[in-house]
Design a binder for these strands. Structure first.
Lengths: 212, 212
DNA sequence: GGGTGTGAAGCCGTTCACAGCA
DNA sequence: TGCTGTGAACGGCTTCACACCC
């Protein structure tokens, strides 16, 4: 359990590393092989020092003096963030948002794959939607444990959030990303991340208003 | 311009205030009229002191000693966050994600309304989608300025993000919420908020992995 | 006793400033 | 010269600790 040399990396750095990787992949697709801290920084609207700090924390040094090696860095971040064997993800609620997320993800991450969906609408169950098999929520325990799924994305309507989360936790889900407008409750051993689109939009609206 | 008594409220507090309001509305719907700081805190998974601090910053005092008056507080937050005349929002890209956001928002906020959508697919233009009129992107300048829209949500495919943002800025959009996987660039006078679903999911996956 | 309001302290992430290197 | 790596300073948000009040 203690082979983990990266134990004390701040949450925010983890988040940024994931974003660095994405930016690096975009750069790599454009044919770049090396990149400067200030280039990464510009892409993410942060400072170059910030980037260097983060890379320092994961122990990466710009190999030659033409910046960082993009492929090396993508690999190193992968080693830190990804689970070596890969992780499966289930999505709960196959509405517009659920489908949007599945499409969004399609083939983006080898080590993190959305493999099943759940819904309670019979028209959406026992078939494939957006390329992944979709089951009725009552099969949750069976499928989640058979597939060894530990991560769930919650995209059901707000009024079903609590109940669905209860079932997810019961079935053994250990990490939940809640896109529902409803705040939910989970036991201590379940990692919960909530994201609310309304708050994000309100924040944008607020700052637009402030500028006159 | 300087009637703004709340000028120096931290970004994070703004974000939380928006979330408080949502939580308060949920509580109000359940028939509650008063609420304690620790109750709000529990809903958002933060501390009670944090809540009291934030409310202190906006100058609200728990009226009687049975906590805060929910309606008063909802109103006060609204006064701070909302624009008095209301703000219109346009959505760019009417795919699954675009539609999901529109539905999500339906009737949630009186002062913040998604009023038009844009797309480049002829099958999606010149008709209503999810209840709002949808136009071809080439009409952007005309419609954005006629309607006085300053806020845009970006939900186009990643490879169209840059170009769409360019058009948005040109048309006079001053705040952008980018749901695209592509980081974009805007002038200084445009407020940009980027959200990446992949990073969020990777973060959840990381902490699930860490717990073993 | 169980809540609120708040000065003061603490902490954590960011930024400064600069040494070192090609 | 222009970049990286990093100790030290800084600043802002969060938490502590406690006075006050019903």
């Amino acid at each position: 359990m203690e082979n983990n040399r990266y134990k004390n990396i701040p949450h925010k750095t983890i988040e940024r590393l994931s974003q660095y990787r994405r930016a690096l992949q975009i750069a790599a697709e454009k044919g770049k092989t090396n990149i400067f801290s200030h280039e990464i920084a510009a892409l993410l609207h942060i400072t170059a020092v910030q980037v260097r700090r983060d890379l320092m924390l994961i122990g990466y040094s710009g190999s030659l003096r033409k910046g960082y090696d993009i492929n090396d860095l993508i690999h190193l971040i992968g080693e830190l963030i990804d689970s070596p064997k890969g992780q499966k993800v289930a999505i709960f609620g196959m509405g517009d948002l659920g489908r949007a997320i599945i499409n969004y993800f399609q083939g983006k991450r080898e080590k993190l794959q959305i493999t099943v969906g759940f819904d309670i609408n019979p028209e959406k169950t026992n078939r494939k939607i957006a390329g992944i098999p979709c089951y009725h929520l009552e099969k949750i325990t069976e499928i989640i444990s058979n597939e060894g799924i530990k991560i769930g994305i919650l995209t059901v309507p707000g009024d079903q959030a609590d109940e669905t989360v209860r079932l997810m936790v019961e079935a053994g889900i250990k990490g939940i990303l809640n896109y529902t407008p409803t705040p939910v409750e989970v036991p201590d051993d379940v990692y919960l991340e909530e994201y609310n689109m309304i708050s994000s939009l309100e924040k944008v609206a607020f700052y637009v208003k402030e500028k006159g």
